[in-house]
Lab assay of single mutants.
Amino acid sequence: KSIMKVYCQICRKGDNEELLLLCDGCDKGCHTYCHRPKITTIPDGDWFCPACIAKA
């Protein structure tokens, strides 16, 4: 079994998992407080990182 360690693409830390959003496009993580602008609430439904939005 392989366990994927998810970490924030900005701060490179994997702590505060409850505030770590996973992109529905690329599965990369980003803390709500590292994202600019900050994300104050966990979004309902799908969330896409800035890189995936730029590709769309």
Rank of each mutant, 00 (worst) to 15 (best):
D46K: 14
G25Q: 13
Y33P: 03
R12N: 08
D27F: 02
Y33H: 07
C52E: 01
Y7G: 07
I53N: 04
W47D: 06
K5Q: 07
T40D: 08
K38V: 08
L20R: 03
L21W: 04
T41D: 09
W47T: 04
A54F: 08
L21K: 12
F48Q: 11
T32I: 13
Y7H: 11
D15S: 10
C8P: 01
K55C: 06
P37Q: 04
C11R: 00
M4Y: 04
D46C: 10
D24W: 09
K38I: 09
T40C: 15
C26S: 01
C8V: 00
C11D: 00
M4N: 05
E18Y: 05
D15H: 02
C52R: 01
Y33R: 10
D44G: 12
D27C: 05
D15M: 02
E18L: 08
C26Y: 01
D24F: 03
L22T: 12
A56Q: 05
K1R: 02
S2D: 14
D27S: 08
L22G: 12
I39C: 13
D46A: 06
R36E: 14
M4C: 10
A51E: 14
I39S: 08
Y33T: 15
E17R: 15
C49P: 00
R36M: 14
S2Q: 09
H31Q: 01
K38C: 07
H31W: 00
G14L: 10
C11K: 00
N16E: 13
C30R: 12
Y7E: 12
C11F: 00
N16D: 14
I3K: 15
V6T: 11
C34Q: 01
C26K: 01
G25M: 09
P37E: 14
L19M: 14
L19I: 07
K5C: 07
G45E: 02
C30I: 15
G45L: 02
H31E: 01
L19W: 11
M4S: 06
M4Q: 10
A51L: 11
Q9G: 11
G25A: 05
H35S: 08
H35K: 13
I10G: 06
C49F: 00
A56C: 04
K38D: 10
C8I: 00
E17P: 15
R12D: 12
E17N: 06
M4L: 06
C34V: 01
L21I: 09
D46T: 08
L19F: 03
P37M: 04
Y33A: 08
I10T: 12
R12Y: 05
Y7I: 05
V6C: 04
M4T: 10
L19D: 06
G25W: 04
Y33N: 04
C49Y: 00
L19H: 05
I39A: 09
Y33E: 10
Q9D: 14
G29W: 06
D44Q: 03
T41P: 15
Y33F: 06
I53W: 05
F48V: 14
W47L: 03
W47R: 07
G14F: 07
G14C: 05
C49T: 00
A51V: 08
G45W: 01
V6E: 08
K5Y: 05
C8Y: 00
L20I: 07
T32W: 06
D15G: 08
K28E: 14
T40F: 12
F48W: 09
C8W: 00
A51M: 13
T32Y: 12
A51P: 15
V6I: 09
H35M: 13
K38N: 06
E18I: 02
A56M: 03
K55R: 00
L22K: 15
S2L: 09
K1D: 05
A56E: 15
L22I: 10
D24G: 15
R36L: 14
S2G: 14
I3F: 03
C30F: 13
G14T: 14
K1I: 04
E18F: 07
G25K: 11
K13P: 02
D46L: 04
D46E: 14
K5A: 06
A56S: 03
Y33Q: 09
R36V: 14
K5I: 03
I42L: 12
C34R: 01
K28V: 10
M4R: 06
H35A: 13
G29E: 09
C23Y: 02
I42D: 04
E17I: 07
R36Y: 04
C8D: 00
E17C: 13
A51S: 12
T32E: 03
C8L: 00
H35W: 05
C49K: 00
D27W: 09
T41K: 15
C49S: 00
K38F: 06
C23R: 03
G45C: 04
P37C: 03
V6P: 06
G29D: 02
I53Q: 11
G29N: 12
T32H: 07
K13V: 07
Q9A: 08
Q9Y: 14
I10A: 07
I42N: 04
K38H: 06
P50Q: 00
R36W: 12
K1C: 03
E18G: 11
G14H: 10
G14W: 08
R12I: 13
I39V: 11
K1S: 05
A54D: 10
I10C: 15
I10K: 07
H31C: 02
G14K: 10
K38M: 08
A54I: 03
C34K: 01
D27I: 14
C11L: 00
F48T: 13
R12H: 05
A54T: 11
V6F: 14
D44P: 14
L20G: 02
S2V: 06
G25T: 08
P43Q: 13
K1A: 02
N16R: 13
H35D: 13
D27E: 15
G14V: 14
E17L: 12
D24C: 15
Q9W: 05
A54L: 14
L22F: 13
H31A: 01
G29T: 08
M4D: 13
H35R: 07
G45A: 06
T40P: 14
L22S: 13
C8G: 00
G29P: 03
A56R: 15
G25F: 03
Y7Q: 11
P43A: 12
K38Y: 06
P37A: 10
P43R: 09
A54R: 04
V6A: 07
I53V: 12
Y7R: 06
C52A: 01
I10D: 15
D46S: 12
C52L: 00
D15K: 11
E18R: 10
L22R: 15
G29Q: 10
Y33I: 04
L21N: 04
K5D: 06
C34S: 01
D44H: 12
F48R: 13
S2M: 04
A54E: 15
C8M: 01
L21T: 11
P43E: 11
G25E: 12
R36H: 13
G45R: 13
K13G: 11
F48S: 14
F48I: 15
K1Y: 03
K5E: 06
D27A: 07
Y7S: 11
I39F: 06
H31D: 02
W47P: 06
A51K: 06
R36A: 12
C8A: 00
I53C: 10
G45V: 06
K13D: 11
G14N: 03
C26N: 01
D24M: 13
I10E: 15
P50V: 13
D44L: 09
E17D: 11
I53R: 08
D24Q: 15
K13N: 08
R12A: 13
D44V: 08
C52T: 02
H31M: 01
A54Q: 15
C34P: 01
K38L: 13
A56D: 12
K1F: 01
L19A: 12
D44K: 04
G14R: 13
C11S: 00
E17F: 02
N16W: 05
C30E: 14
P37S: 05
K55V: 12
S2R: 09
C30K: 09
F48A: 13
D46R: 09
L21M: 09
